[in-house]
């Protein structure tokens, strides 16, 4: 890390992190996120009525979600209206698609682990992360992926005997 990382006081640190921050996305992004939450809150309120609100003596299943839905609608509406004041959202950058790749390997793992065990998807995940997301060498990526899976097998299957689906 850079020499500036010797910063020890909290103020210096905060400043340093501030400087390293990615480009801000502006208030529109906050407003959009808040609008999504407004819609979510409204949907929750509708669903809550369908669940049955009950009475104060015998509260129904929908009473509490209704209160939360209302809270979400109110708080995020305020957020939409005051979005101008927020600059803490970040813009998506060209490397944001790497996040999608990373997430993809995880979802793949989740989808197939039940049928073919954790070893193969685990190795694939580790390999993709090492080689393509981490830009490690082919050699290190291959050895690393295999070593990780072996280590996990030893810990979770042999030592702890957890019932994680495994092929071997």
């Amino acid at each position: 890390m850079s020499a500036s990382h010797e910063a020890r006081t909290p103020e210096e640190l905060a400043e340093q992190w501030e400087a390293e921050k990615p480009p801000a996305a502006g208030p529109l992004s906050t407003a959009a996120a808040a609008a999504v939450v407004v819609l979510l809150g409204a949907a929750v309120m509708v669903a809550s009525f369908r669940l049955g609100v009950g009475s104060v003596q015998q509260p129904g299943a929908g009473l509490w979600p209704l209160m939360i839905g209302a809270f979400l609608v109110v708080s995020s509406t305020v957020l939409v209206l005051t979005a101008r004041r927020f600059d803490d959202a970040e813009r998506f950058v060209s490397s944001s698609w790497l996040v999608l790749v990373g997430l993809g390997t995880m979802v793949l793992f989740a989808l197939v682990v039940g049928t073919i065990g954790f070893e193969i998807p685990g190795a694939v995940l580790a390999f993709v992360w090492l080689r393509f997301l981490g830009k490690e060498s082919w050699r290190l990526s291959t050895i690393g992926a295999v070593a990780m899976v072996v280590a996990f097998y030893l810990i979770f299957v042999l030592a702890l005997q957890t019932p994680i689906p495994h092929l071997f």
């Binding site: 090492l130 981490g134 290190l140 992926a145 990780m148 996990f152 979770f156």
Partner: peptide
């Protein structure tokens, strides 16, 4: 970090399974 990341991801995924043994 590039090596620690996949290890953490795998620990997390497998760890999430072991909580309730649920895919």
């Amino acid at each position: 970090g590039t090596i620690l990341a996949p290890i953490t991801v795998l620990i997390t995924l497998i760890g999430a399974y072991t909580v309730a043994n649920s895919v």
